Simulated assay, not measured.
Amino acid sequence: MPLLPCAAHHVGEQPWRGVLLERHEIPSMELPEHEHRELCLHLQVRGDDQMQWWSEGRHGVERTFPGSIMVVPPGTRDRTLWKGASERLIVSLKPGLLEEVASSADARMPEFKTGWSVNDAGLQRILAEMGREASEGWPLGRLYADLTAANLASALLRRHAFDPVNLGPARGGLPVPQLRRVMEFMTANMDRDLHLDEIAREAGLSSFHFAREFRSVTGQTPYQYLLDQRIDRAKWLLKDHAWAVQEVAGMTGFQSPVNFVRAFRRRVGVTPGAWRKQG
């Protein structure tokens, strides 16, 4: 079900757990009183708007602009009036994701502050990154999507809770921009027989250091991540194109059709040909 009654884009299967993201073109309109069942965020992407809100017996007027963020906790009942058109990324987070991140610091799930026009550059970057991944069809796959969603939950717990959750110092490992660069390199070159050395060079690290840091952040070895990406690409090629299985094997970096069929069956449970027939 869409997060707003107006038309939404990028609705459908999404790779992250516990997150629903939509892009909405919002006209000048009034949204009648409603209750938020989950924590909801709006990032204004385009438009210079004046918005009025009514909630819990209070009323306010906000001047919003690209980069403005709304943070609306679960249980909030509100009515809003947008006086101008805007484009917004709207994200809803299920409690399980926030609870999982909070429990990693042995903390209870906190209550969150309501914000009708929040200025938080870090939160803005994370939401914009999620929007970019969605608009490009999630090219870096489920792993990067889940890491981005976890970063979003962490930012909310640290900076937008009444009792901020101390998640401790940031873990070691690859910074997100460096991680993205490496994942983009692997995705763009998955049709080649990639070597760990050349992947590590993208991160500016030795092979050993890179492999250790990548696993510490993602929970996967670089090989496991690349294999998942290759299988996902193979599914797409098998489903929407008339490529032969042998051709799909070459296009996804497998050295032989036999290796491709074996890896696909191990990961998916059936052969590529059987999977194509099921679809």
Rank of each mutant, 00 (worst) to 15 (best):
235 K>I: 05
278 Q>A: 10
197 D>S: 11
176 V>N: 12
256 S>V: 08
183 M>D: 03
202 E>Q: 13
189 N>L: 10
124 Q>T: 15
56 E>R: 05
241 H>G: 05
147 L>T: 02
187 T>K: 13
278 Q>Y: 12
103 S>H: 10
25 E>D: 05
17 R>K: 14
80 T>F: 02
136 E>L: 13
26 I>C: 00
260 F>N: 11
273 G>S: 09
237 L>G: 03
106 D>V: 13
104 S>H: 01
189 N>G: 09
146 D>S: 04
17 R>Q: 12
264 F>G: 01
96 G>C: 11
158 R>G: 01
84 G>Q: 12
220 Q>S: 14
140 L>V: 14
140 L>C: 15
172 G>L: 11
241 H>R: 13
123 L>E: 01
46 R>F: 00
193 D>V: 12
222 P>K: 15
209 H>W: 14
92 S>I: 06
187 T>H: 13
272 P>Y: 08
36 H>Q: 03
195 H>M: 15
114 T>N: 00
109 M>L: 09
239 K>E: 14
119 N>V: 10
186 M>I: 13
77 R>I: 03
48 D>V: 11
242 A>D: 09
96 G>V: 07
210 F>P: 00
253 G>I: 04
152 L>C: 06
1 M>P: 06
210 F>R: 04
264 F>Q: 04
125 R>V: 09
12 G>R: 13
133 E>C: 08
87 E>H: 07
37 R>V: 01
273 G>R: 07
32 P>Q: 03
133 E>A: 11
255 Q>M: 15
184 E>I: 13
113 K>A: 08
54 W>M: 06
31 L>S: 01
138 W>K: 09
219 G>F: 10
246 Q>L: 09
24 H>R: 01
69 I>S: 02
178 Q>N: 10
246 Q>E: 14
86 S>V: 07
4 L>A: 12
204 G>R: 08
188 A>V: 05
139 P>M: 15
246 Q>R: 11
70 M>I: 02
111 E>L: 07
183 M>G: 08
193 D>G: 13
3 L>I: 14
229 Q>V: 12
169 P>C: 14
267 R>H: 12
237 L>K: 05
241 H>Q: 10
162 F>K: 10
71 V>G: 02
185 F>L: 09
5 P>H: 15
277 K>T: 11
97 L>Q: 05
46 R>D: 03
140 L>F: 14
206 S>G: 12
172 G>I: 13
52 Q>E: 10
81 L>D: 02
157 L>N: 00
208 F>L: 11
265 R>Y: 06
211 A>P: 06
175 P>R: 13
150 A>D: 12
138 W>I: 10
275 W>I: 15
50 Q>E: 04
210 F>M: 05
60 G>F: 03
4 L>V: 11
87 E>M: 15
167 L>K: 02
100 E>N: 12
226 L>T: 01
237 L>W: 01
278 Q>P: 00
81 L>Y: 06
155 A>S: 03
129 E>V: 03
143 L>T: 15
143 L>E: 08
170 A>Y: 07
139 P>H: 14
230 R>G: 01
149 A>P: 03
229 Q>K: 11
8 A>K: 08
84 G>F: 02
10 H>V: 09
96 G>M: 10
68 S>V: 06
155 A>R: 07
210 F>Q: 00
99 E>H: 10
212 R>A: 15
234 A>H: 01
174 L>S: 11
